[in-house]
Design a protein around this nucleic acid. Structure first.
Length: 269
DNA sequence: TTCCAGGGCCGCG
DNA sequence: CGCGGCCATGGA
């Protein structure tokens, strides 16, 4: 609403805090770092978080299996998978269920402003995303007043689990399958949300989240327009794109959504 | 007004 | 197990 509004990415690690900011409409990024970070270590962390250090051409040569995904790559050339905080990612994708992207952003913003921890930079206040501890103190009606709707009970339940010892750090030490099984124990986390957490929160690039769009795209483009189960689609993606299936998923999702809407896709593979 | 949005849970057969 | 109904909310 305000033209001078800053878009800020917040990274909170055990070493400190890194903020990456951009004035809306501006192409220039700036970053600030606090705690134990130096200019170099902060920059390194950012390159990792933003996925800039992956060799994207190698990724393309691995996932470019057919004409459809080749078009997807051409249309979204350079797009990376970024890595964010597991807890924040979990909340974000619990909220994403049966919801739209605009409202997901709004709800996350409401939670940030209402429960976030203030952090001061040169006297200027920046809100850091609230910990599970802080969220767990909110009541369900309070969470609902942020627009979370029927997902409030999941948020409450998951934040309590974390307060009672569920460890996101522990999941870091597990392989993909083990980690997914752990995440599936959380209330409100099913197959798709678990895969999103693993892909965007932990950097498991083999993870292949199957939402309604990806399902439609796979069925239409790769399965001769026949309905398939979630498990069949997982098997297909794993066989075809292996440990980079997550990258394939992102290009299929962003390109396929518009392609299917515009019905440019009589093209099958 | 009605419909839909990056699912998951629950109760059925 | 596989399936369908249900769920809060607000923008189009």
């Amino acid at each position: 609403m305000c033209r001078n509004e800053w878009e800020i990415l917040r990274y909170t690690t055990e070493k400190g805090v890194i903020l990456l900011s951009r004035k809306s409409g501006d192409n220039i990024l700036k970053f600030d770092y606090f705690g134990e970070y130096t200019s170099n270590t902060a920059k390194k962390e950012l390159l990792n978080r933003l996925g800039i250090n992956v060799e994207i051409k190698k990724v393309y040569s691995n996932i470019n299996t057919d004409i459809f995904i080749d078009n997807a790559i051409k249309n979204y050339y350079g797009m990376r998978i970024t890595k964010n905080e597991p807890w924040e990612t979990t909340l974000c994708f619990i909220i994403s269920q049966f919801n739209n992207i605009k409202r997901i952003r709004l709800i996350m913003k409401n939670l940030l402003e209402r429960y976030g921890e203030p952090y001061y930079i040169d006297g200027k206040k920046v809100m850091l995303f609230p910990s599970a501890e802080r969220i767990s103190k909110a009541t369900i009606p309070e969470l609902m007043s942020c627009g979370t709707g029927f997902r409030a009970k999941y948020i409450k339940s998951v934040s309590n689990e974390i307060k009672n010892g569920f460890s996101f750090d522990h999941i870091n030490r597990l392989d993909y399958d083990e980690a997914k099984n752990e995440l599936l124990k959380l209330d409100g986390v099913g197959d798709k949300v678990a895969d999103c957490i693993l892909l965007f929160g932990y950097g498991h690039l083999q993870s292949f989240p199957i939402d309604v769009w990806v399902k439609r795209i796979i069925e239409k483009v790769y399965m001769k327009n026949k309905k398939k189960s979630i498990q069949q689609i997982h098997d297909f993606a794993n066989n075809r794109w292996g440990n980079l299936a997550g990258y394939a998923q992102q290009y299929l999702y962003w390109y396929g959504r518009t392609a299917l809407r515009l019905e440019e896709t009589t093209q099958t593979v």
